[in-house]
Design a protein around this nucleic acid. Structure first.
Lengths: 224, 224
DNA sequence: CCACAAGTTGACCGATGGGGTCAGTTTATC
DNA sequence: GATAAACTGACCCCATCGGTCAACTTGTGG
């Protein structure tokens, strides 16, 4: 599977999308023999994985806009090799975004869905998503759709967006969420956090968490 | 007075600060004759005012980062003339920031101070400052201290910062503000708004105002 | 071991957006 | 009319980073 997910070789670079689609189809169809000879040299395979790991580390600490030169250096290869193996930044993002962002984000969504009480579900989700945003700059790049050419990035946003709507509906149905607080308000709230973290100074964690509390209290339905 | 506040002429450009200081001192000391011959040609004087007005318009719609080329074009002069008359962006900001930002911001502060009830004062101030931020991109550049070399800009921030502390103290003394909400929380709140407006998409005004309400409700002391 | 294609790379190019400069020209003033 | 103030079109520079390519290196199969 790693072979198919690796960036196309230089010869295949132009039809990047068709190649990936083709690989996906091939993987989806059972019965395809995996015993064929490897399509990538050992050094290329090794480099690809090193670049992938270096990208995950770099993106994790500094977000998706890290200079590719830095990723290459951390992987011990030249920048041109990053282009050769992954086609560029988008290809690199596509290769790591599942492990880097989607896994954790979807885990939060999945866990939230197990919480029966709507008010608690919203409180859990908002706190968890904000904590993830605080800790993971790449998450903010995703939520802000900084690289819309990345299909996987956009798919993650789509999932998060749908869950926002789900949360709001449940909160209103249960009466625990103030009536005027809408899906786009929740989206703006998360989006503004992303912008503040991306372009501002990250505050001490205690301050940040305290402010999550204020936000939550501002969207609860007042008790009569 | 406009003459003294105009940018130095090319010959005086290097000692920009001393010249301004000197002009300030001269103005402060009474008795200096104002009947002397003008120190600027009529065209220079006219251009300086045109640039000033063009800058106010441009900064008002798009913030302090507007390309100087755009300001020059709107003023009907060359970019070099902007440099000649104002020394550059900082000089231009210094020439307009009082009228552009300080006047309105200080009016909000002054009016807030007339409100006796602390809770209402905070509500008024937060709504008014957020409304100003929404309407005036330049205000966000000021609050974000985008140009720290501008003394007047930094002075405005200082005033706003002191008023934040005043507000918080009054809110706590009256018991209408939740105890954990601190000065730096208020500053972060305003700051985050500035970042969201500067780097994000400006939402419809109704949505924005609604969100001001949520913020306010999140910082009020809960009623027992 | 050799041939050869895959794979890598150091050096370089180009884009971007706008700040800033200057020699030549124009204009206001005395 | 002389002259200094003022203006300007053309150009330079910057800093960063995405992207390319001819030359070189390396892995693989026969």
């Amino acid at each position: 599977m790693t072979d198919e997910l690796a960036a196309p070789t230089p010869a295949e670079r132009e039809p990047v999308e068709p190649e990936l689609v083709e690989s996906e189809s091939g993987r989806s169809e059972s019965g395809k023999p995996q015993s064929g000879k490897p399509r990538m040299r050992a050094d290329a395979k090794r480099n690809t994985e090193q670049i992938r790991r270096a990208a995950i580390d770099a993106f994790r600490g500094r977000g998706l806009a890290v200079p590719l030169e830095d990723v290459a250096k951390a992987a011990g290869v030249s920048k041109a090799t990053v282009f050769n193996r992954f086609g560029g930044r988008i290809g690199l993002i596509e290769a790591v975004i599942e492990e880097l962002v989607a896994a954790e984000l979807y885990a939060i969504v999945d866990h939230a869905r197990t919480i029966a009480n709507a008010g608690e579900r919203i409180a859990y989700y908002l706190a968890a998503i904000r904590e993830l945003q605080y800790r993971q700059p790449a998450v903010n790049d995703v939520l802000l759709q900084m690289y819309p050419e990345s299909q996987q990035l956009m798919a993650i946003c789509h999932v998060a967006g749908e869950f926002n709507a789900e949360l709001i509906a449940a909160g209103h149905a249960s009466g625990e969420l103030r009536a005027e607080f809408r899906t786009d308000d929740l989206e703006a709230l998360v989006h503004d956090s992303a912008l503040a973290l991306k372009y501002g100074t990250r505050p001490p964690v205690a301050d940040y968490d305290r402010r999550t509390t204020f936000l939550l209290d501002g969207i609860r339905r007042p008790r009569e």
